[in-house]
Amino acid sequence: MNVFRLVGDLSHLLAIIMLLKKIWSSRSCAGISGKSQLLFALVFTTRYLDLFTSFISVYNTSMKVIYILCAYATVYLIYVKFKATYDHNHDTFRAEFLVVPVGGLAFLVNHDFTPLEILWTFSIYLESVAIMPQLFMISKTGEAESITSHYLFCLGGYRALYIINWLYRFYSEGFFDLIAIVAGCVQTILYCDFFYLYITKVIYGQKLSLPA
């Protein structure tokens, strides 16, 4: 474990908790893409199947449990409890256009052709594009609430910190996982446009509005 990965994980946890709290306290999921949250729940489910078969550390196991619980709680709030506030008309990104190619790629490019490894690879590839429905929704509505922007900043920042973690691990222990690195770079690049707007606008208290 290194500081980059730890801060990255905490940023990820903060994003997840922030979103869950926002939906719960405002009792509304307006402006939130349910599809992205479904994809994140799928990402955690397929990545953490080793929860019961391999133990890395208490930290690792507890974070996995927290991520899975929060992901499903968020999906539940969006599609069940506050579904009346779910914005169907703007959450129209075709998620199947993400899941199918990613599923195919996971079969073709992976470290080991075993069910657990293919699912882990699927989860890595899917996570890199899972935010697209949310970014698409913001570009359609033309704006995002500031809390949603903070959520996206933390979420985008976590994988950017992981890239630094991978650089650090490569130089300090010669470890690198090309699949995770390439997917992590794609994921972070997707946020670049948003990062620019966030830094130039939200920091100064303006509302974030993506070019429609």
């Binding site: 080991d112 490894e117 973690n165 995770a180």
Partner: peptide, 10 residues
Amino acid sequence: NGEEDKHDEL
């Protein structure tokens, strides 16, 4: 070995 196969990152 078993160690490498495990993904130790979240």
